[in-house]
Amino acid sequence: MTDPAFMTEKVLGDVLAEFEWLAPYTLNDEDLPDGIDVAFPRCSLFFSEDWTGCVHVAFSAEHTGLDEAVDMRGVREVLGGGKTPGLIKDIAGPGSSKKVQNQIRDLAKILLNEFASSLVGEYAWIPAYTSVLAREKQSREGGQGA
């Protein structure tokens, strides 16, 4: 995380409060040195900030049933990207409080537009996601000579 970190529990909570969520959630940054957990009843998201001040969100393995947490942007890339209107796309320059807040807003919009069902525990994207990953792995392995 950057030093100082611009994403705090208060900043994340204030920005998330700007949106209407499908289920209640709690924030937890205790004993989590690298980010903040946003826990819905049937979905857990992990928000983190990297050294450039970019914010990331991952679905926890606990609720998805996957072997490890999976980054939302990675899911979008594997599945061909989504089309969420009205994104701020504040990615340039060094980390700042404004940049972090704008990125949290964009992530919230994407979650609500493209992954709303996941927030209530329905992960319909997982079979397609794992299928694409398996095909890519098979293609890589099949492309290697014996």
Rank of each mutant, 00 (worst) to 15 (best):
Y129F: 15
G81A: 06
A134C: 04
F59N: 04
W125R: 06
K98M: 02
A61E: 15
A124G: 12
A92E: 14
F46A: 07
R135G: 03
S60D: 11
T130S: 11
G65D: 09
T64M: 14
N102K: 02
N113I: 02
D71K: 11
L66S: 09
I36M: 03
L87A: 01
V70E: 03
Y129S: 11
P94Q: 12
N113W: 09
R135I: 04
L119H: 08
G35C: 06
E77H: 06
V70I: 06
S96P: 07
R105C: 09
D106P: 13
K109V: 05
D50K: 03
K98G: 02
G82C: 09
D34V: 03
L87G: 00
L87M: 03
V78G: 00
L45P: 02
K137C: 01
I88W: 05
T84H: 04
P94W: 10
I110P: 00
D37F: 05
N102Q: 08
V75A: 12
L112G: 08
G121Y: 02
A134H: 08
G53T: 01
M72N: 00
K89A: 15
I104Q: 06
F115C: 03
G35V: 04
G86N: 06
D37W: 05
V55Y: 01
A61W: 12
E77S: 10
E62H: 06
C54Q: 15
S139K: 03
G93P: 01
D106Y: 12
H63G: 04
W51V: 13
V120Q: 12
G82H: 06
V57D: 02
Q138H: 11
L87V: 02
K109G: 03
E68F: 10
T64W: 14
I91F: 15
G86E: 03
E122C: 00
Y129H: 14
S139H: 00
G80Y: 08
T130E: 13
A58R: 14
K83C: 10
A116R: 15
P127Q: 08
L119D: 09
G86C: 05
A39P: 00
Q103T: 04
I110F: 01
P94I: 07
I91Y: 15
K83W: 09
R105W: 07
D50G: 02
I36W: 01
T64F: 13
R105G: 07
T64L: 14
G81Y: 10
P85W: 03
E114V: 10
T64E: 14
G95I: 00
A108S: 15
R135L: 10
T64Y: 14
A134I: 02
P94S: 12
A124V: 09
W125D: 13
E49N: 04
S117T: 12
V75N: 04
E122W: 00
F40L: 09
K83F: 11
L119E: 09
K109E: 07
T130R: 10
E68W: 09
H63L: 12
I91R: 13
V100Q: 01
A58D: 15
Q101E: 14
R42K: 14
E68G: 05
D67W: 02
